[in-house]
Design a protein around this nucleic acid. Structure first.
Length: 700
DNA sequence: GGTAACTGGGTTTTT
DNA sequence: CCCAGTTACC
């Protein structure tokens, strides 16, 4: 249904601008991209290989749709990361565009949240419901675990984090616990009955306390779409639905998309099933493959012209790309024909004696690149798991090479940040017991039992729990009471304030003393919290600040302080997952050995292995000009207790003969020899000390 | 009774 | 290196 065109002067001027923008944008596209952007009628799948200009094509499609008369706000753009959404929206319209001229865009979770928040009552949720992040889910599971026979020393029960993993995967794949545990968590088989009970209790707990987790956001959205009354209304909000990274949808998200566009009319999906790397959170590239079956009139457009990498890099990428029937794709180097300077350097595989050598080799090449004119931030080291860079980080520090690390532990997972969020939540929504629990336990002398007692005395499910604080305080031993009371009373004051900025400042003030007392490095932590409070102060309400923090956690404290200074230059270390969608002139891939890449956790199943191969493909396709592959021959295999075991590693199975033929293979120089008489020196030292111990009485 | 300090066992990737 | 269970202490 095209939007009505009205002919007020302002609107037609706006339309003229839309026209101009669309024409400009379309002119910059290649033939396939333009075919995708201007596809009319029927569902469309854009099979977009890495670096083929998928974002530009989506933006162009949105512009074309508007040119065809679709109102911007009736275009829904769904992405998986906030960054992807922001990128596209920024390119789709000028930043000062009025709301009606803005595309509705965001992550699946953010859009779901917007909808649910707007209609909280209809979902019978309290208007101030709290969105809890995965760490909170784990905490809730932890408190409930005790009641469900999931603790004890007899056999190792699944940990709270594992319970949360199992829960979310059951939900996101619509799989029964028994089946999912048997397939993906076989070591928890003996606990499926308890897990079922735990999950039931978890759901009840959420409902009783007005909590919504990430999965609920999707579940509620889908339920609303499936509802006979609400469904048509929600579908009717949009004329076009554009989904980015469709290979990363899980069953729930695929279902949401299907229910948004049941006949496929107005649906555009973009994806590449060779880049599906989120199976562990329920995603399944089969949904992308099944689009063909679901929509018989699906049009498939392939984008194969790669504007990112040199030919030599793409040759390797094509050699390691897993192909699936019907969706095959082979990347073609578009840069080299334009820039013409040959094919670029071949990817280099550096075989290293061990991991320490590998770290030195990476440093040496990073420094070489730097001397050749590359900034450090033009180079990235991409790792399978966060700890793969441990040794490298030591070496980088020793050589004074600055770096930042992405992925792994997030800022919001740092203890003091969680403390702040908990305190802010107590102010924003005093009925949440999770926040109280953490806040109380922050104080010296308060453990789980006392915290629970205070919370019970507050009777959080009844109105105005803060009024009962004086009673609840009596549960505390005299030793701990003054400190806790000081914090809580400051928070109660904060709750009485109007302005977000004042509230955020008051929360920070309340935390000053307990944080100082708890952490030895309190200074740095308080500085973090100051930035957090400043960021929160800019939001319309404390509530909004908290939701945003949960849905889109900053990767580091410096994220909050805005962009780092321009003259700061850091080498990038990132997990491969976090590197998705990004590119660097030079990319370093360490640990290319079976057990690391592919991860040993994935070696046992064919699906796991297939995902690891896609991950490797994603990593390789991040490089623009230079790609360095590192294979340690002797590496850390396994660790039991204090016993470090090393073994001889096999080169990653993903570099088969065909792939190796695309690489320059060299051997790193052997490690520096140890000082030969170190053992003798130690003996001498002992002998020197011996005179200090006096005569040896036992020695006849 | 409840909390803090110790010790031994296990470990991916994240909206 | 972080978490969970155990022991030691208030």
């Amino acid at each position: 249904m095209p939007a009505r065109r009205e002919c007020s002067g302002r609107l037609s001027a706006g339309l003229a601008m839309v026209r101009r923008m669309a024409a400009d944008i379309l002119a910059g596209l290649n033939d396939e991209q333009r075919a995708a952007a201007t596809h009319a009628g029927g569902p469309l799948l854009i099979l977009a290989g890495a670096g083929t200009g998928k974002t530009g094509t989506l933006v162009a499609r949105a512009a074309w749709l508007r040119d065809q008369g679709t109102q911007a706000s009736r275009i829904l753009l769904l992405t998986f990361t906030r960054r992807a959404a922001d990128d596209m929206l920024a390119r789709a319209h000028p930043p000062d565009a009025p709301a009606a001229d803005r595309i509705t865009g965001g992550t699946f979770h953010a859009i779901a949240h917007r909808l649910i928040r707007a209609h909280a009552e209809s979902f019978s949720l309290p208007p101030d419901f709290t969105v809890i992040d995965p760490a909170d889910v784990t905490d809730v599971m932890d408190t409930l675990r005790v009641d469900h026979d999931l603790v004890g020393t007899r056999r190792r029960a699944p940990r709270a984090a594992t319970c949360a993993d199992i829960y979310t995967r059951c939900v996101n794949t619509s799989t029964q616990v028994v089946k999912l545990v048997a397939e993906a968590f076989p070591w928890c088989n003996d606990f499926t009955a308890q897990l079922g009970g735990l999950f039931r209790a978890y759901t009840a707990h959420k409902r009783a306390h007005g909590l919504i987790d990430f999965d609920d956001l999707l579940l509620l959205w889908r339920a609303a779409l499936a509802d006979p009354a609400a469904g048509p209304a929600l579908r009717g909000l949009f004329d076009a639905v554009l989904v980015d990274e469709y290979q990363d949808v899980n069953a729930l998200q695929a279902d949401i998309v299907r229910r948004l566009r049941p006949d496929g009319e107005g649906l555009t999906c973009v994806g590449d099933d060779a880049q599906a790397i989120y199976a562990f959170r329920g995603a399944d590239p089969a949904h992308l493959r099944m689009l063909t079956a679901w929509y018989p009139d699906l049009t498939v457009v392939r984008l194969v012209r790669n504007y990112r990498s040199r030919h030599a890099v793409l040759q390797l990428a094509n050699a390691v790309r897993p192909q699936s029937a019907g969706l095959e794709l082979e990347l073609i180097a578009a840069r080299d024909s334009a820039e013409s300077a040959g094919h670029g350097p071949r990817p280099t595989l550096i075989r290293c004696h061990d991991e320490a050598t590998q770290a030195r080799e990476i440093c040496a090449r990073v420094l070489d690149g730097h001397e050749a004119g590359l900034r450090f931030q033009d180079q990235a080291v991409l790792v399978r798991t966060a700890h793969h860079s441990d040794l490298l980080e030591i070496e980088l520090s020793a050589r004074g090479i600055p770096y930042v690390k992405f992925g792994g532990l997030r800022f919001t997972e740092a203890a003091h940040v969680k403390d702040f969020i908990a305190a802010a939540r107590v102010v924003a929504n005093p009925a949440g017991d999770l926040a109280w629990f953490r806040l109380l336990r922050l104080h010296e002398g308060i453990g789980p039992v006392l915290a629970r007692r205070v919370i019970d005395a507050l009777r959080l499910t009844e109105p105005e729990p803060l009024d009962r604080w004086p009673d609840a305080a009596r549960c505390l031993p005299p030793r701990a009471r003054p400190a806790v009371a000081a914090t809580v009373e400051r928070l109660i004051e904060a709750a009485g304030l109007e302005q977000t900025a004042d509230r955020a400042a008051a929360v920070l003030a309340a935390l000053h003393d307990p944080v100082s007392a708890r952490y030895p490095d309190a200074g740095a932590r308080l500085a973090d919290l100051q930035r957090l409070a400043d960021a929160a102060a800019t939001r319309p309400s404390l509530h909004d600040a908290l939701v945003e923090l949960a849905l889109d956690p900053p990767a580091s404290g410096s994220d909050l302080a805005g962009r780092p200074r321009l003259d700061d230059d850091f080498l990038i270390i990132s997990t491969i997952h976090s590197a998705k969608g990004l590119e660097w002139p030079a990319v370093h891939l360490p640990q290319l050995a079976d057990g690391a890449v592919p991860s040993d956790m994935a070696l046992s199943t064919p699906e796991g292995l297939a995902e690891e191969q896609r991950l490797f493909y994603v990593a390789v396709t991040r490089a623009r000009d230079q790609l360095y592959l590192y294979a340690p021959l002797r590496m850390h295999v396994h660790r039991t207790g204090r016993d470090d075991r090393h073994g001889y590693a096999l080169l990653t199975r993903f570099l088969d003969a065909a792939a190796l033929a695309r690489c320059e293979v060299i051997d790193a120089s052997p490690p520096r020899p140890l000082i030969p008489h170190l053992a003798r020196l130690a003996q001498t030292v002992d002998q020197d000390l011996d005179s200090l111990w006096g005569p040896d009485l036992l020695d006849g």
